[in-house]
Amino acid sequence: MKIQRIALLVLALVTIMLPIEAGAQSVPASDSILSKAVSDQQLTLSADSKTAVVTRCVALQAQLSQLSSKTAATIHLYLDTYGSTINDLQAFELRLARQGVDGSEIDLLIGKMQGAMDSLTISGSTYTGTLNAVASVDCVNQPEEFVAGIVLARAQLSQLQKSANQIEQLLIDAPSSTFNQIIKRLSA
């Protein structure tokens, strides 16, 4: 009787653990991203296109892998540049606070920059993730996934560029949106 209970308990635990393992493994699968891309784009390749893709695929995978690394390094550099700018702005904000001058515009700018940096990080991570997935497909058996991944990466690159432009624009607009008011306040 006791053995039966223990066996039931073990069975219950195994039943619980199986979906955990399956769920944990299935989430980051890059294959599923590309399969979904093929399905979403309803992509079919003609025999000629397929041959052309298979022929170029391996060389392009190395190229795309390099592009992914280069893009990741560039994003890191951007985040570093914007991060140091935020540090500068925070230092100004502290100095202004010490002398009793309102620097809330700087606070607002920092908040917007942090939001834009998060957006840049996410879009960059998505884009480089797709490039890496494309760089590791089976060229012979998955030419559709390769092409669909490139199309998907193009859309994600567009989003990445938008995020990068957004944060740059914040700083281009900073003189009129932020600094001029503070200069006026300090000059008054």
Binding site: D80, N87, Q90, A91, F92, R95, L96, Q99, T121, I182
Partner: peptide, 20 residues
């Protein structure tokens, strides 16, 4: 990581005291 980069590590390397 991005937040850490942007987090104000103002210990020593930035002037946070003099008037602006």
């Amino acid at each position: 990581i991005g937040s850490q980069l942007s987090a104000a590590n103002l210990n020593g390397s930035y002037d946070v005291t003099s008037p602006v």
